[in-house]
């Protein structure tokens, strides 16, 4: 467990600038909360909150999709995997790192959201449920991206991830709504997007649990692929 934690913390440290840039959006929401007349501008605040929420899912794909590629390209992965670290532990560390990075963002957003939206009449507990949905969506999206990053460059990994996450959403819109739950990133994001002051939604835990289970499946798949990869050769 210790190597996993070390790799995760190291990942967050290496991604500190993208995380900082992400947190600027939360700061924007906080500034808006300070500057706005909350009862009057509450719909605008909710809109900004939802918009800022979505960014973290995109960033999780970016984090996951570029993690292994950049380590292999810089050859820093060699020093790490020359130690007593198995490839599964390395992948677990990256998944945990993506989760921590997104968790930091969601925590900051949750704090700001519960202050601004809470003052505007949005149930504070529901804000934290929405953050839980986002973290679960990020974990799943990040793991799928990480799986593709074991053998693709970040551009193709992001594209392939978008396809894998987008197809069930498309099927949910066109064939039957339950298809959207096949890979529930869209379902989880939709919970955030559909929330409103009148219908803030209720805490439905099934998509979160499903996302966690699928994350484990994709992690196992990633480990199987990564085990076969020649890591000393850079992906181009």
């Amino acid at each position: 467990m210790k190597p996993v934690l070390l790799i995760a913390i190291n990942f967050v440290r290496e991604q500190r600038w993208p995380i900082f840039v992400l947190l600027l959006w939360v700061l924007l929401l906080a500034v808006l909360g300070l500057a706005a007349n909350i009862p009057r501008d509450r719909e605008d605040l909710l809109f900004v909150f939802k918009q800022v929420s979505i960014y973290v899912v995109a960033f999780s794909i970016f984090f996951g999709g570029s993690a292994i590629y950049s380590e292999r390209k810089s050859r820093r992965i060699l020093a790490v995997l020359s130690k007593g670290v198995s490839r599964q532990q390395y992948l677990s560390g990256l998944v945990l790192g993506v989760t921590i990075a997104c968790g930091i963002y969601c925590f900051a957003l949750g704090l700001t959201g519960s202050w601004t939206l809470g003052e505007a009449g949005f149930p504070m507990l529901q804000v934290w449920f929405l953050m839980a949905c986002l973290v679960a969506a990020c974990m799943l999206a990040g793991t799928v991206a990480l799986m593709f990053s074991t053998f693709l460059n970040p551009f193709f990994a992001a594209g392939a991830t978008a396809l894998v996450l987008g197809l069930p959403a498309l099927a949910g819109q066109t064939v039957a709504p339950r298809w959207a739950d096949a890979i529930p990133v869209y379902s989880l994001v939709a919970i955030v997007l559909r929330s409103s002051y009148r219908f803030p939604g209720r805490a439905v835990w099934f998509p979160i649990l499903l996302a966690l289970v699928e994350m484990l499946i994709f992690w196992a798949l990633s480990a199987q692929i990564f085990w076969r990869v020649d890591i000393a050769v850079a992906v181009e």
Partner: peptide, 18 residues
């Protein structure tokens, strides 16, 4: 074997470190 690598030291050509 990851466990065996605990007993090994490795320095790569063109070393890259954090």
């Amino acid at each position: 074997n990851a466990r065996t690598r605990r007993r090994v030291g490795f320095l790569a050509e063109n070393v890259a470190l954090y």
